[in-house]
Amino acid sequence: MIEFENFVKQYRDFRLEISMSIPDSRVVGIIGKNGCGKSTAIKAILGLVRPTSGSVRVFGRESKDLTPRDREKIGVSLSDSMFSPLFTVEDVVAILRAMYRDFDEPFFREMCGRLNLPSGKPLKEFSTGMKEKVKVLAAVTHNASLLILDEPTAGLDVEARSEIIGFLKEYAGSHDCTVLISSHISTDLEGLCDEFYLFSGGRIVLHETDSGIGSRYGTVQIPFELFDSIGRQYISGFKKETFGYACVTNSREFFERNYPELKVKPAGIDDLILLLGGGTEE
């Protein structure tokens, strides 16, 4: 569905350099700290930025060559861009109706009711959470086969985040579509994504399935005196702390078996972001 091949985007002070392949019908999370290249990758998929070298293909076509008909199959919610704040939900409905042949107006209206979105109020008077809900609804109500959601929960309170993530889980579970979702809030993606790409400094530092992270990855606290004696192939990333090194490993079992005295825990996505996306990689 999406294919980044030796993709490079060079800015004056930032370089994104990735290769990745996102197959059909998968829910894929792009995680990483702010400024690691998540949004640039998403913009590249949409043809909003062009590669300095390499290519990005969507539906088998170069992203810059996507036709309006191709774009009808993509539902998008961007973190910092949306409909004019002058528009009301009624205006949004009229525009989407004219834009998409498969726009499901009854579903859109029903969801607006469920999510308490007033139809006659300008978007500029909406809270951040309400705006995000409108964006996500606009993305999912035209039978898209590819959903691209860039930080759909950024800046939202717990309740709004939970509503949006709940809705996305429901949607992804009941539709045969590929979902690409980026976030720096790991808990939002846990239980939603089939696989993850961890970005750091414009590169992919980890590609792993949800079950792979749960079964193989772990965090382990290693005292200074022990650190050098452990083979580095068992340590994926580490960070110096006061007690020693906070490490992330993709061989949790190795530590559990050979170092029962060490504190070994299953790694969460936050641990991966912290220790792979910001710590020292090995």
Binding site: P68, R71, V76, D80, S84
Partner: peptide, 18 residues
């Protein structure tokens, strides 16, 4: 101007528009 306002273009060109 309204299209450009508030970084509107990225969203606009994510719609079925080239």
């Amino acid at each position: 101007a309204f299209d450009e306002h508030d970084n509107g273009f990225p969203f606009l060109f994510s719609l079925p528009v080239d």
